[in-house]
Amino acid sequence: MLTRKTSDLIVVGAGVVGAACAYYAARAGLDVTVIDRGPVAGGTTGAGEGNLLVSDKEPGPELDLAFLSLKLWGELGDLLPHDMEYENKGGLVVASSPEGLRALGGFAAKQREAGVEAKEVPADRLHDLEPHLAPGLAGGYHYPQDSQVQPAVAAARLLRAADVRGRVHLRLGEEVTAVLTDADGGVRGVRTPTGEVHAPHVVNAAGTWGGDLARLAGADLPVLPRRGFVLVTEPLPRVVRHKVYAADYVADVASDSAALQTSGVVECTPAGPVLIGASRERVGYDRTLSVEVLSRLAAQAVQLFPVLSGVRAMRSYTGFRPYLPDHLPAIGPDPRVPGLLHACGHEGAGIGLAPGTGLLIASMVAGHELPVDASPFRPDRFPAAVHAAPGEEPPHGA
């Protein structure tokens, strides 16, 4: 028998962005239903490294949202359990050549004007920050504001904290098969295999599958998957103190290329394993293990930290970053479908930007003042003609 239930807000997606939307909406006094076809953090969040970065962001709306989110992550780090592994450890970007260092310097100068702390580190002082770094690097920049969390645990802790007053109803293992609208085209809820769930607002926090959910509602959002691999080593002593990455990582993040790109990114976790990335490529939803990519990541990690050459890689995992053509997320109401809001398309920055996104969505629904200008994130900013490339449509049932 079909069931019907009423909430103020339905959030589709139980990753860290959806969890943040639920958390701040519940704090604003709203009753929230969170629906996901899988478990908490079963998509992109569970395949993330947990980066909370300003070091890779140029001045503009994404950096503004990152500043807000860093502040909120700091508050959450004090509030939520320590197993979330919130750590303000800072980042270190290194250059292998004088030309690369000059490019980093120009980027850092623009960032400093926008409020980012970026401190030049000459070559002979790099080992003060990272004793195991390879010799011969030209220098780098230290970003003390960069932080990290354990993303899957963070999502779970946000959902649990949101439900303190019984305002959040979690429905896992239920795929949204339809977005329900009324005669005027406005949202009135969603349908799952167990029945209809009613609410005047639906938030699309479906991550890489956000375009699929938008289409169910009759809207167009050109979210595409950008695949990445992460290598995980055996537990080690703290051989890497910061998030350390090569200068070309910033260019890879901003690139529109569908081709394979890899750049060395190395960081320790409080639990001991070292995480090694980062790769980007647009290959649709292909999860096939790529030995080529993993070999590149391992080689680039050893170039940065030769001490890792004898360390065992215990496993790897694959995820899909939700890519939008202008590298900005879609956050806010969709004027084409009244009652539909989007909170997706963050690419590789979703974990870092989750709290700011959640607070924006909650403020919009509750009618509160917005903490930052949300106009650059308008979901209807893309031409309707933008479509997924062959093979990049979500697989059936996604």
Rank of each mutant, 00 (worst) to 15 (best):
R4Y: 03
I10H: 10
I10C: 10
I10G: 08
G15S: 07
A26H: 03
A26W: 01
L30D: 02
V54W: 01
K57E: 13
L65M: 12
E75I: 00
E75L: 00
L80D: 10
Y86W: 05
G90V: 07
P98N: 14
E99Y: 08
G105K: 08
A109W: 07
A118N: 10
L129Y: 12
G136M: 10
Y141S: 03
Y143V: 06
Q145K: 07
S147Y: 01
V153P: 00
A155R: 02
A156L: 10
L158K: 00
L159K: 03
G185A: 12
G195E: 01
G210A: 07
R215K: 07
A217Q: 08
D220I: 06
V223M: 09
P225I: 15
G228V: 10
L231W: 09
V239M: 14
H242Q: 06
A251T: 09
L260Y: 05
G272S: 06
L275S: 12
R282E: 15
Y285H: 12
R287N: 09
L304I: 07
F305S: 06
F305G: 07
L308P: 00
G319K: 03
G339Q: 02
G358C: 09
G358T: 14
V365S: 08
A366N: 08
H368V: 00
L370V: 14
V372Q: 09
F377P: 06
H387Y: 02
G391F: 09
P394N: 10
